[in-house]
Amino acid sequence: MIVAERKPIKEILAMVADFKKILLVGCKGCVTVCNAGGTKEVGILASALKIARKKEGNPIEIDEMTLERQCDPEYIDQLEEPLKNNNYDAVLSMACSVGPQFIARRYDNILVYPTLNTCFMGGALEHGVWAEFCQGCGNCIIHHFGGLCPIARCSKSLMNGPCGGSAGGKCEVSPDIDCVWHLIYDRMKQLGKLDQLREIFPIKDWSTSRDGGPRKIVREDLKK
């Protein structure tokens, strides 16, 4: 999933400083799963903003809403009625940054703000802890590395083994980061495939990654 976290409250308060009435929109997709922008987090953020503004003697009205997803136009359409019937100063999205962009491209008369920082593609290591596992390079190569990704998980994206900074299974960048090359080595050893790591992994073609420009996938079989 896409893992995100809420922006600091102060940053969000600064965004809405001039507004009296806003719509705060959550998303039931990835950001609900990673506890960043679901119905509950929308409630907490709305409450925090209202408390802060009430305290200043400058109350703000906040309507809350959580869409099935914010990355599909059909759900974004559901904002049409509330936007028509209310005089919102702005819409704040609690989805990954796809959400506010989808709202912005659908409704051209309303200001849209992100309240989350979209961080990475990853998963939950345990409840409350998420880590990055994929960088979306567009050409998956993890089967060459025991199923682990050195592009996303090695701080230097090294493809031919650990750098000299790998110590005790940890990355030199931080003791909180596992050296993925140490994990790859252990796993390949376990699998009896160490020989594979002796081969030089060739220079990667990054044109399928963001380096080739913004990407798009078209499935003619699905298109209307």
């Binding site: 509950k40 409630g43 907490i44 409450s47 925090a48 209202k50 408390i51 009430k54």
Partner: peptide
Amino acid sequence: VDILHLMHALE
């Protein structure tokens, strides 16, 4: 006790 309960009480 949910975070929201605490927040709403303060609010």
